[in-house]
Nucleic acid binder design. Structure first.
Length: 424
RNA sequence: GGAGAGGUGGCUGAGCGGUCGAAAGCGGCGGUCUUGAAAACCGUUGAACUGAAAGGUUCCCAGGGUUCGAAUCCCUGCCUCUCCGCCA
């Protein structure tokens, strides 16, 4: 959520920022409603002031054995008016709130300006795409041939975009989760968490999935619970409605969670394979910090995610999303894209963003400065990494002519010392 | 799932329907004292909105209701605890 002060005092710059996102919102109705809201509020407050005064006078008059009938009758009218005004006020306030909750964050000055994905800016590449002496196979062909991925049975059990990992496939997924968490939590860089993967509406609103993106979420209707699309939701909301101490910042959390996405609107995209599943594993990194540190810490967090790929020996590049491709809540985002040989393309495996105070304002995550001032923290998060897609990258980049897969050295201890996965 | 108890400030914990944002204690902060610290004593100590300020409004889990007036009464929901049942 943007600061209402900014909207009132600096609307031109807000509009400019939104224009960079290809967004042209009409603010006129809101401006009017906002004025009206403040007017009514003042009116209500004046009436309430009178009522409060009377509430003190009445007992005094009673004590002095003076008549109170007139005053009470007068207050009856006042109270009636108050509740009428409040009814209107509530309606306007919730409409205004809803409008604000649907405005995206503004891009940071360092974000490249552009219309679409095509304008994203490559920051760096790491590693070289492997050269194969044969036509590299897709990970689903490899996985099925090795008997470690079973898409047919995944579909039978649940439906399209679900997979059954078997044997060493399941082991590999688990190995990656453990490896990633071990690296991130080494020497206390991130505190490990294991949060709920089902959350309430407040949490989803706090991190920005609601109210706008409800159709992307799985919904448990009986009790209005929602399945998280990313670990960012429970991790960020850990500190919702809290005032943190500056001396405790920055806070860094890492967690493995399942993630669930409806993938409404992505029909026809990545219909085969692990890339786009309704349910997947992810290790998420989240930081809370004072505003002055957030851009430096975004780089740190990005580096932490990159480290995993480096240690696994998987070629990747880092891309800075342009203003037109930025997610709803982000002020700045780096995507890490890993090389996928069968597609001869880099594909997203991590997204690292600085939300500035956008989520903190929604979720009411604040901190007290050393000077005693209370202000919103900045939140930063990123995948470290999407586990299923890491499996994709390993299967495809490490594939051998004989159909086997070499297991990255750092992962071997997590695979019981196994050096490769081969069909028996 | 059944029966009961309860949700008050950083914590513990008072609070008759009417000067209650809320006693008291602890903790925190500032000071006196001290070479320093502890102890003792004194003072101070929630948040949001609004206003240049003075001030005003709101918040005692959440949402409704009763009332001139609600932390206090009623209803609903959520959460916590105890007992029973079931259960990984």
């Amino acid at each position: 959520m943007l600061s209402i002060k900014k909207l009132r005092d600096d609307l031109d710059n807000v509009k400019k920022g939104l224009a960079l996102r290809n967004l042209d919102l009409s603010f006129e109705p809101w401006i009017e409603a906002d004025l009206r809201q403040r007017e009514i509020k003042q009116e209500v407050e004046t009436l309430k002031h009178r009522r409060n005064q009377a509430s003190q006078e009445i007992p005094q008059l009673k004590k002095a054995k003076k008549p109170v009938e007139t005053l009470i009758n007068e207050m009856k009218t006042v109270s009636k008016k108050i509740s009428e005004y409040e009814h209107t006020l509530k309606k306007i306030e919730s409409e205004n709130e809803d409008f604000l909750l649907r405005i995206p964050n503004l891009p940071h000055a360092s974000v490249p300006v552009g219309k679409s994905e095509a304008d994203n800016q490559e920051i760096r590449q790491w590693g070289k795409p492997p050269a194969f002496s044969f036509e590299p196979k897709s990970h689903w062909d490899i996985g099925e041939a090795l008997g470690i991925l079973d898409f047919e049975r995944g579909a039978k059990i649940a439906g399209a975009r679900f997979v059954l990992y078997r044997g060493l496939g399941a082991r590999l997924e688990r190995a990656l989760i453990n490896y990633m968490l071990d690296v991130h939590t080494a020497s206390g860089r991130y505190q490990e968490m294991l949060p709920p993967v089902i959350v309430n509406r407040d949490s989803m609103t706090g991190t920005g999935q609601l109210p706008k993106f409800e159709e992307d979420l799985f919904h448990l209707k009986d009790n209005d619970y929602l399945l998280i699309p990313t670990g960012e939701v429970p991790l960020t909301n850990i500190h919702a409605d809290e005032i943190l101490a500056e001396s405790d910042l920055p806070l860094s959390y890492a967690a493995h969670t399942l993630c669930f996405r409806r993938e409404a609107g992505s029909y026809g995209q990545d219909t085969r394979g692990l890339i786009r599943q309704h349910q997947f594993n992810k290790v998420e990194l989240v930081k809370f910090c004072p505003p002055a540190q957030s851009y430096a810490l975004l780089e740190t967090l990005l580096g932490d995610a990159e480290l995993i790929l480096q240690k696994l020996g998987l070629p990747y590049r880092v891309v800075s999303l342009c203003t037109g491709d930025l997610g709803f809540t982000a002020a700045k985002t780096y995507d890490i894209e890993v090389w996928v040989p069968s597609q001869a393309k880099y594909r997203e495996i991590s997204s690292c963003s600085n939300f500035e105070d956008f989520q903190a304002r929604r979720a009411k995550i604040r901190y007290r400065t050393e000077a005693g001032k209370i202000q919103h923290v900045h939140t930063i998060n990123g995948s470290g990494l999407a586990v299923g897609r890491t499996v994709v990258a390993i299967l495809e980049n490490m594939q051998q002519a004989d159909g086997s897969i070499l297991i990255p050295e750092v992962l071997q201890p997590y695979m019981g010392g196994l050096e490769k996965i081969a069909s028996i």
